[in-house]
Amino acid sequence: MGSPTLEDYSCWILGIIVVLGQSNLAESKPTIQTVNFESCYNISKRLVNVVVDTLSQLQNLSEDFNCSYTTIDLQYDPHEMHTLNACLPQTCICSNINKPVTDKDRCLMSIHSDLKTFKSKLQSVNLTLPPLNKVTEEMMGALKRYDDGMEGKTESYSQYNRKIIQCTAILKFQRRAITISRIFSYLKDEASKRLSH
């Protein structure tokens, strides 16, 4: 074997350029992962129903404790407000929302984050009913690409505090589930309007 010629080097260089060019193209192509708003809306309606059923079960089990909006002061922590902050226009009158969700990715990421927060809170107070877990997981799965990778924290509570926190968490989750369902209804309708034009 003799020493490589200029022609040999040019073949190698050309080969390297082609391989690098293909890998750069593969990296630069955005992965198109769309969210099926129709499916998310249907899941969100089931989520609302399951949360309402869970609240009803909790109220029936708590004979010594009245779990209702009139007895619990619902003060939201900032980490429970992602959906509202990201999905609703800042200057809206909530009874008449007809402005578009401006940043859908931020909105969907916030919905996923709120679902994870409520799921973690309910698990930390031993409120893990299979139907609630299943539909929450299904909704989170539909938004999996928006998972931030952060895990929720778990805490331990006394028996009485656990009842209060269970009640507060499920009441807040009920409101958030309704909000999520309304957002997906809007996004579903908006997507179908775009398809029909």
Rank of each mutant, 00 (worst) to 15 (best):
Thr70Val: 07
Lys193Met: 15
Ser62Leu: 10
Thr83Arg: 02
Glu190Cys: 05
Lys144Thr: 10
Tyr186Gly: 07
Ala26Asp: 13
Ala169Pro: 00
Pro131Ser: 08
Val35Leu: 13
Thr70His: 05
Ile164Asp: 01
Tyr146Gln: 03
Pro130Arg: 03
Lys121Gln: 06
Arg182Thr: 04
Ile32Leu: 15
Gln90Ala: 10
Tyr160Lys: 13
Asp189Tyr: 08
Ser192Pro: 02
Ser120Pro: 02
Asn126Ser: 15
Arg106Phe: 06
Met1Gln: 11
Pro78Trp: 06
Tyr41His: 11
Phe173Gln: 00
His197Thr: 07
Tyr157Pro: 00
Cys40His: 11
Thr54Lys: 00
Asn60Tyr: 12
Thr136His: 01
His82Trp: 05
Thr70Leu: 04
Ser10Glu: 13
Gln90Tyr: 10
Met81Asn: 12
Ser68Gln: 13
Pro30Thr: 12
Ser39Asn: 10
Gln166Pro: 02
Ile17Lys: 06
Cys92Gln: 11
Ser10Ile: 12
Asp189Asn: 11
Leu61Phe: 06
Lys193Glu: 12
Leu88Pro: 04
Phe184Ala: 01
Ile16His: 09
Val19Pro: 03
Leu143Trp: 09
Leu129Asp: 05
Ser110Gly: 15
Ala26Gly: 08
Ala142Phe: 04
Thr117Ala: 09
Thr154Ala: 09
Lys193Val: 10
Thr179Gln: 08
Asp103Phe: 14
Ile170Arg: 00
Asn98Arg: 13
Ser113Arg: 10
Leu143Pro: 01
Glu80Thr: 01
Phe65Tyr: 13
Thr91His: 14
Gln90Cys: 03
Asp148Ala: 08
Arg175Ala: 03
Leu47Asn: 00
